[in-house]
Computed example of a mutant assay.
Amino acid sequence: MTGIPRAPLMLGLAGLLPFVWGALTVLNPALAEWTIRAIGPRFAGPYVMLFYGAIILSFMSGVLWGFSTRLEGAQASTGYALSVIPALWAFFTTGGGPVSAGISLMAGFAGLLALDGLFWRYGAAPAWWMQLRVLLTAIVLACLAVGVFA
């Protein structure tokens, strides 16, 4: 992790908190019950991961759009078109219940990682980008898997 600047690494890891919290509340029913009583059911179990996951896929569409501004010609056009996919994916695939939505988000985050790699290969993302994105995506996928399969 030495190649990743400190601020993006710390903010990226902090951004994992809702996913980790959701997975912990799936694995620990007492923690889930406390969360439901203290701050509401939307912040427990798979629900916090699903809601936040859709938000993050949309956020990442914006990041990819920003990377597209560094490209020119056909690569830029392709980049802009591809950048909207994560947000549209979240919008159209997460309404079918917690298991199907969780599986859809897992596919969305795996696809996002592929898009991250493409923008990185185009030279639009920072040199350290894939090191950060692989780490964050692995943790997100593990947490979502807890929500889907536990």
Rank of each mutant, 00 (worst) to 15 (best):
F119V: 01
I36F: 03
L82I: 07
I56S: 01
A142L: 15
T69V: 12
F51E: 02
S77E: 13
I103V: 14
G95N: 07
S61H: 07
T137A: 14
L105S: 02
S104Q: 10
L71M: 15
L27A: 15
I56P: 00
R37H: 08
A125K: 00
A107T: 08
N28A: 14
F51D: 07
F59Q: 04
L82S: 08
D116V: 01
F59G: 03
A145F: 15
T94I: 12
P5M: 10
T78V: 11
F109D: 00
T2A: 14
P5Q: 12
V63A: 12
A114Y: 02
T2P: 01
T78E: 12
A145H: 09
L113F: 07
A38R: 02
F92H: 05
T25H: 10
M49I: 11
P41Q: 09
L115P: 02
L64M: 13
I36D: 03
R70I: 04
L57I: 08
P86E: 04
G53Q: 03
L17M: 14
I103D: 03
L16G: 10
L118G: 04
S104E: 03
F43S: 05
N28K: 11
G62E: 07
G66D: 08
L136A: 07
V148S: 15
F92K: 06
R70C: 09
I55Q: 09
A90P: 00
A150V: 14
A142H: 05
W120I: 00
P98E: 10
V20N: 13
S77T: 12
I4Q: 10
L141D: 05
G111P: 05
L132N: 06
A124G: 09
G117H: 02
I55T: 11
V63H: 05
M1W: 11
I56L: 11
F149A: 15
G12L: 06
T69G: 14
L113N: 05
G123E: 08
A81T: 12
A81L: 14
L16H: 13
G79L: 11
D116E: 10
L118D: 05
S58Y: 03
L50I: 15
W89I: 03
S68Y: 04
